[in-house]
Design a protein around this nucleic acid. Structure first.
Length: 467
RNA sequence: GGGGCCGUGGGGUAGCCUGGUCUAUCCUUCCGGCUUUGGGGGCCGGAGACCCCGGUUCAAAUCCGGGCGGCCCCA
């Protein structure tokens, strides 16, 4: 089955999202999907807090004059901003933008909050929805007009070095976050022509969808003093001078959930990493006349015991076991415990692993030890498997022909002389997008020559078809 | 930015070209009942649809125009 088709089908049948909301690019999170989303958010929220970021919440609306203060920034967004133009029947004196991103909402407040070097560093984050007037093929969680879960952090620092250090911290933070979800990635410094509007440079994380196209799943922007100059974010140094703050911002969107779904899923449906699975274990009692009550009683016992070590669901609906098996596989529950007359007699249970689709029998008494161990194994196995598949599709190419050959089926690395002209030519020649150069910066490029001009390569450059 | 295809119960579809027994097909789903339950069980009964607006026509799911929505290809 083709990826788009599979993806749409899984979102629907596993009840992640309902795509039937009657506005293009807007979708409804269903309870099951919402639980996955919530767990993904919580993991990132915890990491941000642990690294000293404090959570805030800014308004959704940004006045036009404020949004347009940074010219380069607004130029990058102006054709995709949603505007609120009326209050009731009255036209507003000043239009209000639905935030396409929050820099211009947040930094004027930074200007008020930051007075002295003692106020720095300032590190905040918020988890909000943002809006983009997408005109082309929208897709749930991948390209939406309302991004429902933008987890954006904004920081201000006294020195460039500290801001650079913050970029590295953000890189570590996101790397471990993606690792935890088993989502493989490469981090690249985006080319000049594709950086965040208004930033000095942008580091982006890209993963690969099953169809071979790259998906940007996170970005880190070094803003330098660009925005602090525009928004007058100044502080008094120890020497008593006024100086502009050095700033960074970074964010991850709903796409991270899309990548978890797409990367781990299989022909049976979702395969959820135990860390973010709403249920980690489902108990399916196999009821038979006569012993029905006994089996149910035992199943409840098992549920109580396992609840100490995992999130457990007992499915005691009056439908056939086969149907329940399919249902919970579709939902991606990592482990299934099957309990029937046979097991009851032997004091055992069958445990089925969603990732490998394999069964094994354990004694009931060892289940509380086995389950956490298996959950860890599933988590690790998904991560490892995903990385293997990812690396298989990381290609190296010396010539344009080779780049062209691989560009539809993964990320291609080749040499680059460093000129924008060659970068853009490369995109045209191979019908792909330049993702950028490796971050952290490599010592020597692996490919010796730029395949476009033939000059010695200064950097490795990555190309892929993108979403 | 350019081009193409499509919209029928909750999901997937037949019908549309050639307007009229369409009182709209089939599968699935859902509800009630009985019977079942070790990989989507069976039987009986029931519920549920022509995207919206306008036009052509005696007559529109079907033809025409627009809107909204979806999918695909190319740049």
């Amino acid at each position: 089955m083709e990826f788009s088709e599979w993806y749409a089908e899984v979102l629907r049948s596993a009840e992640v999202m309902d795509v039937r909301y009657p506005v293009k690019g807007l979708y409804v999170w269903l309870p099951y999907g919402f639980e996955i989303r919530r767990r993904v958010i919580e993991r990132l929220r915890r990491r941000l807090r642990e690294t000293g970021h404090r959570e805030v919440l800014f308004p959704t609306l940004i006045p036009e004059t404020q949004l347009e203060r940074e010219s380069e920034h607004i130029a990058g967004f102006e054709d995709e901003v949603f505007w609120v133009t009326h209050g009731g029947l009255k036209e507003l004196d000043e239009k209000l933008a639905l935030r396409p991103t929050s820099e211009t909402a947040i930094y004027p407040m930074f200007a008020l909050w930051i007075r002295s070097h003692a106020d720095l560093p300032l590190k905040v984050f918020q988890i909000v929805n943002t809006f983009r007037y997408e005109t082309k093929h929208t897709r749930p969680l991948i390209r939406m007009r309302e991004i429902t879960t933008f987890k954006e952090a904004h920081t201000a620092h006294a020195t460039r070095e500290e801001a650079e250090e913050q970029v590295r911290e953000a890189f570590e933070l996101y790397s471990s976050f993606f690792e935890e979800l088993g989502v493989p990635y490469v981090a690249s410094v985006r080319p000049e022509w594709d950086k965040f509007p208004g930033a000095e440079y942008t580091v982006a994380f890209d993963t690969l969808m099953p169809d071979g196209r790259a998906l940007q799943i996170g970005t880190i922007h070094m803003l330098g003093q660009n925005f602090s100059r525009t928004f007058e974010v100044t502080f008094e140094t120890e020497e008593g001078e006024q100086e502009y703050a050095y700033m960074t911002c970074y964010g991850v969107s709903d796409r991270v959930v899309a990548s978890v779904i797409a990367i781990h899923g299989d022909e049976h449906g979702l395969v959820l990493p135990p860390d973010v699975a709403p249920y980690q274990v489902v108990i399916v009692p196999i009821l038979k006349k006569g012993v029905r009550k006994k089996i149910l009683r035992k199943a409840r016992e098992v549920r109580e015991e396992l609840s100490e070590v995992a999130r457990v669901k007992l499915d005691d609906r009056d439908v056939s076991p086969g149907r329940k098996f399919h249902y919970w596989e579709l939902k991606g529950v990592p482990l299934r415990v099957e309990l029937g007359a046979r097991e009851l007699e032997e004091g055992t249970a069958v445990v089925f692993r969603r990732d490998e689709l394999e069964r094994e029998t354990y004694s009931l008494s060892e289940l509380p030890d086995v389950v956490p161990r298996l959950l860890e194994e599933v988590q690790e196995n998904l991560r490892r498997r995903a990385w293997e598949r990812f690396e298989e599709r990381l290609h190296r190419a010396e010539s344009l022909e080779e780049v062209r050959e691989f560009v539809g089926e993964g990320i291609v690395e080749t040499g680059w002389c460093g000129s924008e002209e060659c970068g853009r030519r490369l995109e045209e020649e191979v019908e792909g997008d330049v993702l950028g150069t490796p971050y952290p910066e490599e010592r020597e490029p692996e490919v010796e020559r730029c395949p476009v001009c033939g000059e010695p390569a200064e950097r490795t450059i990555r190309v892929a078809k993108t979403y």
